[in-house]
Design a protein around this nucleic acid. Structure first.
Lengths: 237, 237
DNA sequence: AAGTGGTCTAGACCACATT
DNA sequence: ATGTGGTCTAGACCACTTC
């Protein structure tokens, strides 16, 4: 593990455990250099991680401080350390799938555009109900080019597609671009998710990229409103 | 402007303008060092900005590449360079407010907890309908400690509270922690937003921090479903 | 004036990926 | 074997804040 990551871990634990409390000034960068026997750049990199996680703030010419965080907020921040993968929206639960459709189709124009491939190229067309701890929580519509993700089988679709990619293709998911919206459930969606017609649903539209930069997935998922929640931290600059 | 930011800007423009296209390998870090006459660390910092923005990926031992981005996606990424401030959810539009309530109250237990202050401390209790381009799009409930944000007047509440903080208090908003949910509109909300009762609404719960690390705001806002949209990029590691 | 974090360098060495 | 990006250093200088 890199030194800066180790230092970030140590300080994160100290903040979480209350060793440094809300609004408290942290030791100076210079002092951390001595404590950890590293250079200034390394300390800075460690502290910048904690800034991006929302735990601390830095003021040039003044010092570094723990944010005015409530205990509840600290717990929340630590729990929601960001995952990728639609199933990872529901962490620490058993996720399985009821497969409604799993075919290879010629991509229609709009799907081809979202996947950055030619219209008519073959794509997996995967339609699943995602079941978390026995309860249907989301309907997920996924398209992937067969050229980018070859060899996908029904058993993979019933479980985790992401696992298939990481294990069998020895590739990895690098990033996901997401768009969140809200609308009313259609009759079909309401039926599958155990809702009334017109009840609210959360929509996640996602484009996924591999660590090669390749666009491998376009999906949108419809989420039951009472179990849908997304958290994030925005930071200026 | 720091060198790394300048370099990031130059490369971002080149990607947007199509000078570097999808999946194309970028020049090596070493080459950028010569082109811009800077050291390797500076180039790396510039490229890391573009990684976090979702434009490129880097592979150790192999090179740096433009992501397999559609033109639509590139435009979207550039438009949604992140803002802070609830009104900034609606960029480039005229935002004003109908103030339903603006009082100073003793904080009830739950609000005090969210603001990390003692129960019974005085807080602004601000209840506004946010009107974008003449249309009511959101209801916003904001609580702020009068100790942290002194001197707030009705005219500020009718306009932008954030502007008041930045201009009059010479302070700045450093970060915001957000939680997104979905539910049905109440009768009151439906009426104010021009919806049917039970129609979907998006909920944004937000805790805001100043650049001093102080928690200055707890708010939650109820958004009309057909104009509610949030975009973000998730990156592994 | 003194002291903070921010930027930048020139170079060393390392971990990883391809050929 | 070669070459990529990743980490790290020791030190310089800068921008900013407070007192």
């Amino acid at each position: 593990m890199p030194k800066y990551m180790h230092i970030a871990n140590v300080l994160r634990n100290q903040i979480m455990s209350g060793e440094y409390v809300a609004n408290q000034q942290l030791p100076l960068e210079k002092e951390f250099c001595e404590v950890f026997s590293v250079s200034k750049m390394t300390v800075k990199k460690a502290l910048d991680i904690l800034v991006s996680e929302g735990l601390i703030i830095k003021r040039r010419g003044y010092g570094t401080f723990v944010k005015d965080l409530t205990q509840v907020e600290i717990q929340r921040l630590m729990m929601s350390r960001q995952f990728i993968g639609t199933s990872a929206l529901y962490t620490k639960s058993e996720v399985r799938s009821k497969v409604i459709n799993f075919t290879v189709d010629a991509a229609p124009a709009d799907i081809a555009e979202h996947l950055n491939i030619e219209e008519g190229s073959f794509v997996y067309n995967i339609y699943r109900v995602r079941i978390v701890d026995g309860e249907p929580l989301a309907i997920e519509h996924t398209y992937m080019s067969i050229d980018v993700i070859p060899g996908l089988k029904l058993e993979n679709v019933q479980g985790s597609i992401y696992e298939y990619i990481e294990v069998n293709l020895n590739s990895a998911i690098q990033s996901a671009h997401r768009k969140i919206r809200v609308r009313k459930a259609t009759d079909f969606e309401a039926n599958e998710l155990g809702l009334e017609i017109g009840d609210p649903v959360g929509i996640v539209e996602q484009t996924g990229y591999l660590n090669t930069g390749e666009l491998f997935e376009y999906s949108f998922s419809i989420h039951k409103y009472d179990s849908f929640q997304i958290e994030f931290v925005l930071t200026r600059e």
